[in-house]
Design a protein around this nucleic acid. Structure first.
Length: 201
DNA sequence: CAAACGATTTTCT
DNA sequence: GAAAATCGTTTGG
C-alpha cells in the first residue's frame, strides 16, 4: 500500500527515518517506472538541528517547502551537481525532513543504468543520495510534489526490518553542524550493499 | 550586483 | 588519498 499523509505527519522525525527503512521508493517520471527499497536514511530535525537548512527556523525560498505539511518532497541541489531527495515530515510550520541516502534497486533497473550511464548493476548505482536521485530520475523540479501523487511515492510492501538489523550512526558530511554532528540520526540496514560508503564521525 | 559555499561523486595520481 | 566538477542559494557590499 502507498503510505498516506498520516505516516509522514508523526511528530518524531527520528522514528519516521527508522520506519522508512524497508519501504519502497517509487518514481514514475517521464513515463518511466523505477523503484527501490530504502536502506539508508538520515533525520533532520528542523529548528533545533544545526545540520538542517531550517536551523533556528530560518525561512528562505528554498526551505519553504519544509514548512509545509508532512508528505511532500524536498529536493535540494548540492555542489551544483547532485540532487538530494528528502521527505518532509511533521505538520505545517514544523520543518522536519528525512534524507534518503540509499536504496536497493528493485524495478526498472535498465532505466536506472541508462540514467547513470552504467553498463552493469553494482552497488554504486543507487548507494548515496546523489546517485539514487539520478537513478530514479529525481530532479530539483520535483521539490514540493506530494508523495501521495503519481510521480513520486513510497509504498509499504510488507517488508519488515528487524530492530537488530537497524544500525544507528552519525550523519554524513555535516561536520559544520558542531555538536549536532554527533547526533545518531543516520539509520541503515546492516550488511546491505546499497548503503552509502560515506563516513560519519 | 558579486562572491562564497555546499546534506557529493568521480576521476586522476 | 587528493582534487576537480559545477550552479543555485545565500550573504555581503
Amino acid at each position: 500500500m502507498i503510505l498516506e499523509d498520516s505516516f509522514y505527519q508523526g511528530k518524531d522525525v527520528v522514528k519516521i527515518a527508522k520506519q522508512l527503512l524497508g519501504k519502497v521508493l517509487v518514481t514514475h517520471i517521464g513515463g518511466i517506472y523505477t523503484s527501490g527499497m530504502i536502506v539508508e536514511t538520515e533525520a533532520y530535525a528542523g529548528a533545533a538541528d544545526k545540520a538542517s537548512h531550517a536551523y533556528n527556523n530560518r525561512r528562505t525560498a528554498r526551505t519553504e517547502v519544509m514548512y509545509g505539511k508532512g508528505g511532500t518532497s524536498y529536493v535540494y541541489l548540492c555542489y551544483g551537481i547532485h540532487h538530494l531527495f528528502n521527505v518532509v515530515t511533521n505538520v505545517q510550520d514544523v520543518p522536519h525532513a528525512v534524507l534518503v541516502r540509499g536504496v536497493e534497486p528493485l524495478e526498472g533497473i535498465e532505466h536506472m543504468l541508462a540514467r547513470r550511464r552504467k553498463e552493469k548493476l553494482d552497488s554504486t548505482l543507487t548507494a548515496g543520495p546523489g546517485a539514487l536521485s539520478m537513478a530514479l530520475g529525481i530532479h530539483t523540479r520535483h521539490t514540493g510534489v506530494p508523495l501521495s501523487g503519481t510521480e513520486i511515492y513510497i509504498e509499504d510492501r510488507g517488508i519488515k526490518v528487524a530492530a537488530k538489523n537497524i544500525v544507528a550512526a552519525t550523519r554524513v558530511g555535516v561536520a559544520y553542524a558542531a555538536e549536532d554532528a554527533y547526533l545518531p540520526y543516520r539509520f541503515y540496514i546492516r550488511d546491505n550493499k546499497y548503503v552509502s560508503k560515506g563516513k560519519g564521525l
